[in-house]
Every structure is written in structure tokens, then in C-alpha cells.
Design a protein around this nucleic acid. Structure first.
Length: 554
RNA sequence: GCGCCCGUAGCUCAAUUGGAUAGAGCGUUAGCCUCCGGAGCUAAAGGUUACAGGUUCGAUUCCUGUCGGGCGCACCA
């Protein structure tokens, strides 16, 4: 709301100065400065324009400030500061009315119509259906689900999608592995495949198969296809239920096999050929991706006639575009970053918008226990799964920790810390603030005190600081969405919780003074809404009460 | 050898897409409970942002190089 008003007001400033162009307005950057001495909002617009206007930045700023429409309901001052920043300070009227505004916004406070109706797809996790989800999948799930919510909160029509790689050599090996494990238990001789899936979960899956049918399949030539298909379904169902419990919901589970069946893969090859970027060499067919920024050309059809991963992947992204998405955000694991260039190049060759595909690499996670890295061997099937992690630390802590750091940075996940139910665990810091607020509101309600509905008096510095912070929430949401950086949410929420706790220690909420009590209850309630909305975007719960487990009290 | 991510306080990480005096948590030290939840609060200490240049009003951020860590570099996905 404030963001829109500021954009509009500065547009007016530019117009009055005779400098208004769409391009300049598009370059406008608004920010909430970290130092309150620099106002509640700031822009460097004058610094950006000074050069092209051949004027000193401060003179540009003065002119813009003079042309900024007065609005006492929001601003008390517009000042030129430093080398030429424009600093905007909230009026008392704005802060006094803020709790009512937050309350009116309710669960949509913080949301904004920045990209109304733009269809965006976020593809995330997309783990192979040949094994349980691992911790990097868990990180991707936390980030992806948060991104979907952030995009929705900023007006996009966003959908989450899980791409199922149910085709290719890996799933065949998986089917063989499962058949061998089933045979082993049934006392039938059958070789376990080389490089087969060693994990104990394959034996578990074998126990879930319908025994009579499985036995029949064992006897048939090519019977591993039966095990492959049934194993995939069981595995997918496990992944789905884990993710469901984890709070990552997908609008769609897209299977690679449908692209092959529908002919989309073949059509994609034809489309590439029509563009004249396919050639034959060494018995294989290549795409000239080097013409579009790749560092080497890529094989799309092997000499044995089978497509490489790239071709269905290109077909998949064409399909996304054809389904009407304006952009696709893919979250990939760290071992896939080598594929960004080939895929983008191929899409480029097909004429898709250059910014259609956006790939975010979710970096690796190092689990630490007792200060030491937890050893994981995928080969031996020994790894900590997402389910293990949820059982160990709970979904809330897992998600909070995963969202705490920027997605592109490696993450050290301290299991001991996440397990602790005490002040060393940052998850509880924010949740505790919410629970404490709920407690205060219960206490107040028992005394017949409700939040003040209209403008409230704002006296203490702690009240003012907290209100400023609450007012910044919509901008944090907007910024996190456009930058695709969900980690701004926990950072903001920790700051907000800190300001709330400080307020709480200085400002008695429920007192003999009923009017002041109601005013402060309104502040507390507004804080509750912001914390709840922020945690909600992270997929973390906002508890009304918190109790430690008995063993954690010591 | 080439590409990508990263290098910031003792540790784990931020720094609002180039902004103003680089901030949090943990750890360390010293304090705060007659009253709304102490999973809390206050204060102190802690930095040549790996290093050297460059670009400009301004660089942790962008460019070049060096050093160090991780991950990729398939007719596997």
C-alpha cells in the first residue's frame, strides 16, 4: 500500500519536474533503510538521474522533494540527505492508524498486487522416484513451497509442480533391484543388478507388493517392468505423503513418460530440426547449442537411437510454455548446474523468451551432529532422509532452518541445535513471540479488553519502533518474491520478534488504564497478524501455546 | 584445464537486486523476575568483508587477477 503510494507520488514528482518517462519510473528503487535515522523509506532516484540530467544529485533530489505531493495521512517529511537520497518519514497519523490497517488486512496483510495474474510455475524437488527424499530435497521443498506462497502473495498465479523422472536407465535398474529383493525373500534365485539400489527401503517396498502378482511377474521374461511400475507407484506415494506432511503441496505431478507417449519429445526434435540446429556426427544427433551461448554442442539422440535427458527436458519446458505459464522457475540440486546452459540454449533455439526459464540451484546441505559432519553414503543406501529429519527435529524447525540461509549458499544444518527446545534454537524465538502474544490476548480478553478499533495514541519509542517494523512487512514480502529470496522472511521475523519482546518488557500492555490497554492490545494484535502471516509464508506454524517436552526442560 | 557456488566477528550466517556508521543468532563476560509466558530483556567485548588492482558520487555487492573450500564438466539423469 505504501509502496504503491510512493511510486505514484514519485511519478508525480518526476512529472512536475518535467523528467517523467516510463523508463525512469521503471528504474525506481524504493527501500526501507535499516537505520531509522534515514527515515522509513528511501530512494536513490536522484543519484541515478543526476548524471543523465547533468545536475548535482542533491539539486535533483531537492526538485523531486519539492514536487512530491503532500499527504499528511502517510508522511510527515520528505528530506534530502547524504549525497542525494530522498528520505520519507511516516507521519504520526500513519503510525496511529497502522494497527487498524493491519487488522483490516488480516491474513492478507503484506500481500500486494504487484504482478496481477501473471502465471508462474515453480518446479521443485523433482526427486527421482527410485528412492526416499533426502535432505536437499527437503531444503528444496521448503524453498519451493515458500516461493509459491510468496508469488501468490504478490499477485501472481503461481503453481508448484513436481517432475517425475519415470523414464530411463535409472528406473530400469530400480525395477531390477526391486525384483531381485523380492526374489531373495521368496527364496528364488535372481541376480542383484550391478550398481543396483542397495537401500533397505527396496526390501521394504518388496514387502508391500501384492505377492501373487509379483511371483507371476518374476517368472515372465522382462518381468522387471512390472516391478519397475509398481515400485515407482509405491515410491511416489511415499514421497507424496512425506511432502504432504512437510507442508509442500504441488498443483501437479508431471510424469516424464507422458511426454514420450504423447509424442511431445518427437515433436520437439522436429521443431529443433526445423530451426536448423540439429546435425549428425559420430552416429548421434546433436544440437548446436553453442550458437546460443553453450560451451559445447549436446547430443540429443544417442547412436543407439535413444534420446538423452536433454530432449525430454526441452519438451517438458516447451510444454510449460504451451500451458500458458509466463515464466518457469526451476529449483535444481547442486549436481545439475551443468545443465542450465544446454537447456537454456535449446529453449533459446526454439524461440522461447530468454527470461522464460529461471533456474535456482539449491545448494548442498551438510548435516552436523556433535559438531561433526554426518557421513552419508548413497551407494550403500545409508543416508538421512527427509522423513528422518522430520522425525528428528519436526517439520517447523526443518523448514525454518532451511529458509534461514540464502538458497544458493551451502548450508550447515546443526541437528543438535535444531533438536533443542530452548533459546539456542531460532525457530522458537519467533514462535515464542507469537505464543506470548496469544497469551496476552487471552489474558486481556478475560478482562473484557479488545483491541482499539481506530487510531491509537503512540507514545513510547518501543511502540514506534515496532510499528515501523510492522509497516515494512509488505515490502519484505515484495522484495523476497522478486528476488526469489525466501530467507528474508525469517530474518525479518526475528527482528520483528526482537522488537516485540523489547516493547513487551518496557510497555505494560494490560493495565488499569483501559484506553491505553486497548491501544497496546491493538499493537500486540497487529504484531500477531504479521508474525502469523510471515510464518505462514514460510510454511511454519504459529502456535497459540508452547510447551517444552519434559526431557528438554533440564 | 574449463564452468558454477562460496570466502564477512571464535562458530553458523545476514547485509533490501551498487547505498549512508557491515548486522543477527550462538558462544564469552556482567546484569534484570512483587505484575500480561524468563523459549524473554539490557549491556560489553568481538571486523584490514581471503588478498591485490579496477570501474564511480559511493563496492561486502560489479569487472580482472591470485589464494583457499565445495560441486560439476557423459552418447548417465
Amino acid at each position: 500500500m505504501v509502496w504503491a503510494k510512493l511510486t505514484e507520488g514519485l511519478g508525480e514528482s518526476l512529472r512536475r519536474a518535467g523528467w517523467l518517462t516510463d523508463e525512469r519510473l521503471g528504474r525506481l528503487e524504493l527501500a526501507v533503510p535499516r537505520d531509522p535515522a534515514h527515515g522509513d523509506w528511501t530512494t536513490n532516484l536522484a543519484l541515478l538521474l543526476a548524471r543523465e540530467l547533468s545536475m548535482p544529485p542533491r539539486a535533483v533530489a531537492e526538485k523531486l522533494a519539492a514536487g512530491f505531493p503532500a499527504d499528511a495521512s502517510t508522511w510527515s517529511s520528505v528530506e534530502v540527505a547524504g549525497p542525494g537520497f530522498l528520505n520519507f518519514t511516516y507521519s504520526d497519523a500513519f503510525l496511529r492508524g497502522l494497527p487498524a490497517a493491519v487488522r483490516a488486512g488480516g491474513e492478507t496483510f503484506g500481500h500486494g498486487p504487484h504482478d496481477p495474474g501473471t502465471r508462474v510455475q515453480v518446479e521443485y524437488v523433482s526427486a527421482n522416484p527410485t528412492g526416499p527424499l533426502n535432505v536437499v530435497n527437503g531444503r528444496a521443498a521448503a524453498v519451493g513451497a515458500a516461493l509459491v506462497r510468496l508469488l501468490e502473495a504478490t499477485g501472481h498465479r503461481a503453481e508448484g509442480e513436481f517432475y517425475v523422472n519415470d523414464t530411463g536407465a535409472q528406473v530400469e535398474v530400480f525395477g531390477e533391484s526391486l525384483a531381485a529383493r523380492f526374489a531373495e525373500r521368496a527364496g528364488i534365485e535372481r541376480a542383484f543388478p550391478e550398481n543396483g539400489y542397495q537401500g533397505e527401503y527396496v526390501r521394504d517396498l518388496g514387502r508391500e507388493l501384492p505377492p501373487a502378482e509379483a511371483r507371476r511377474a518374476l517368472g515372465e521374461p522382462g518381468g522387471s517392468a512390472w516391478f519397475r511400475d509398481h515400485g515407482l507407484e509405491l515410491m511416489l506415494e511415499r514421497q507424496r505423503s512425506d511432502l504432504d506432511q512437510y507442508g509442500a503441496v504441488f498443483s501437479n505431478w508431471f510424469r516424464e513418460s507422458t511426454l514420450h507417449r504423447s509424442g511431445a519429445v518427437a515433436r520437439t526434435l522436429e521443431a529443433l530440426e526445423e530451426r536448423g540446429v540439429v546435425y549428425e556426427a559420430e552416429g548421434a544427433r546433436w544440437v548446436r547449442t553453442t550458437a546460443f551461448g553453450d560451451d559445447k554442442d549436446r547430443v540429443v539422440v544417442r547412436s543407439n537411437g535413444v534420446a538423452t535427458y536433454l530432449l525430454p527436458d526441452v519438451a517438458y519446458h516447451r510444454d510449460k510454455r504451451a500451458r500458458g505459464f509466463r515464466s518457469a522457475i526451476d529449483l535444481w540440486g547442486p549436481d545439475h548446474h551443468g545443465h542450465i546452459l544446454p537447456l537454456k540454449a535449446a529453449l533459446d533455439a526454439l524461440g522461447l523468451e530468454p527470461d522464460f526459464l529461471e533456474v535456482i540451484i539449491v545448494q548442498q546441505v551438510n548435516l552436523l551432529a556433535g559438531g561433526e559432519p554426518v557421513k552419508m553414503s548413497k551407494r550403500a543406501g545409508e543416508f538421512i532422509t527427509l522423513r528422518d529429519l522430520m522425525d528428528e527435529v519436526g517439520p517447523d524447525c526443518a523448514k525454518f532452518f532451511f529458509l534461514l540461509r540464502s538458497t544458493s549458499a551451502h548450508l550447515d544444518f546443526d541437528l543438535d541445535l535444531a533438536k533443542q527446545q530452548n533459546d539456542e534454537n531460532p525457530t522458537y524465538y519467533v514462535q515464542y513471540a507469537h505464543a506470548r502474544i496469544a497469551s496476552i490476548l487471552r489474558f486481556a480478553s478475560e478482562r473484557g479488553l479488545e483491541p482499539a478499533r481506530g487510531p491509537i495514541p503512540v507514545e513510547a519509542a518501543e511502540e514506534r519502533a515496532l510499528l515501523r517494523k510492522l509497516a515494512a512487512f509488505p515490502e519484505v514480502v515484495r522484495g523476497a518474491a522478486v528476488a526469489r529470496e525466501p530467507h528474508r522472511l525469517p530474518a525479518y521475523l526475528m527482528e520483528t520478534a526482537a522488537l516485540f519482546h523489547r516493547f513487551y518488557h518496557v510497555c505494560r500492555v494490560v493495565s488499569e488504564d483501559r484506553e491505553r490497554s486497548r491501544a497496546r492490545i491493538a499493537i500486540v494484535d497487529a504484531t500477531r497478524i504479521v508474525l502469523r502471516n510471515g510464518l505462514g509464508l514460510m510454511g511454519v506454524t504459529s502456535p497459540e501455546r508452547m510447551e517444552r517436552d519434559a526431557e528438554s526442560v533440564a
